[in-house]
């Protein structure tokens, strides 16, 4: 019974990681990755390693999405129009 939380958190991680693999659009993938990060943080916490969980939260909640989305924007090549120019997709 005490392991229920660990099982639940691990299930969430597996589900989120699978979903991240099957999401092909990088911008949408960033959103799934954010949830994967949250699930990992819960796993680390229920395994009593809050230091690792804190690292995961610090990096995964704002920094990784920002870097990913900036990279996506650069690759799509609509630099300074800041989201206004629209390409057919």
């Amino acid at each position: 019974m005490a392991d229920l939380l660990i099982v639940l958190a691990l299930t969430l991680v597996v589900a989120a990681a699978t979903a991240a693999v099957f999401t092909r659009n990088p911008a949408r993938q960033a959103l799934v990755l954010a949830l994967l990060g949250l699930a990992l943080a819960v796993v680390f916490t229920v395994l009593q390693s809050p230091d690792v969980a804190l690292s995961q939260l610090a990096v995964g909640s704002a920094l990784t999405p920002l870097m990913l989305l900036l990279a996506v924007r650069k690759v799509r090549g609509r630099g300074r129009h800041d989201g206004r120019a629209r390409e057919p997709r």
């Binding site: 989201g83 206004r84 629209r86």
Partner: peptide
């Protein structure tokens, strides 16, 4: 950091 992350999406997925 949670709301900051959401604001990142709101800003960069604005279109």
């Amino acid at each position: 950091l949670g709301p900051a992350g959401t604001l990142v999406y709101a800003r960069l997925l604005a279109d």
